[in-house]
């Protein structure tokens, strides 16, 4: 029994069952397949997270975000006072998370590419774009740059999915995707 020392002191010389050997081979090969699938997707797939990131102070990131918002503001979101910003396609766009909002609201064009810069002004936040379900971890002090291409029009929510204190569940932002004019 497995609770006793092996009776055969040379247990490493005991023969193996064929079925077990085959299973080990299958499992090992499957591991290789899964390993190389990740690499393959970097060449063939369209969803790969960039590793482009910079260290940045929260003040500086807020400044850049506010500058973009002032320049490209098209309206306000309902009566919330949050600007809706429509930067030109192909440019660098900014959004920050802070307790407890994603700011500002962005309006993007379908099938156009944007370089989205994300950072937090205080604690860690989770950028969770719904309903498409893309999830990124946002750190204070780090600026993450993701190149995005919205492939559907509509109203998307940015939910916070990293716990950030007692108002966590009220932290919501928005991205509109519209057809290019």
């Amino acid at each position: 029994m497995a609770i006793h020392p092996p009776a055969d002191r040379l247990w490493w010389k005991e023969p193996l069952a064929t079925s077990e050997v085959i299973w080990i081979a299958v499992a090992f090969l499957w591991g290789l397949v899964m390993f190389f699938t990740m690499i393959y997707w970097h060449f063939a797939g369209e969803q790969n997270l960039s590793s482009e990131a910079y260290k940045i102070s929260p003040e500086k990131f807020a400044e850049r975000t506010e500058a973009m918002a002032a320049k490209y503001k098209v309206r306000e979101e309902g009566d919330t006072g949050v600007p809706v910003v429509r930067p030109p396609a192909g440019t660098d766009i900014y959004m920050f998370g802070r307790l407890w909002e994603w700011w500002p609201v962005l309006e993007l064009e379908k099938d156009k590419t944007y370089r989205l810069h994300l950072s937090s002004l205080d604690w860690q936040h989770g950028f969770s774009l719904q309903p498409t379900n893309i999830n990124l971890q946002i750190h204070p002090g780090y600026e993450m740059v993701v190149t995005l291409k919205p492939n559907k029009t509509g109203e998307f929510s940015v939910v916070c999915n990293e716990f950030c204190g007692v108002g966590h569940h009220t932290m919501v932002g928005r991205i509109y995707v519209v057809d290019a004019k």
Binding site: Q130, P131, N133, S157, H168, H169, V172
Partner: peptide, 23 residues
């Protein structure tokens, strides 16, 4: 898989300034 966040008190987002469509 439907995007519901973990560690979250309210998936109806009733106290949030913006609404969220939850399936």
């Amino acid at each position: 898989t439907l995007g519901v966040p973990r560690r979250h008190w309210d998936i109806t987002f009733s106290d949030a300034p913006l609404s969220v469509d939850v399936p």
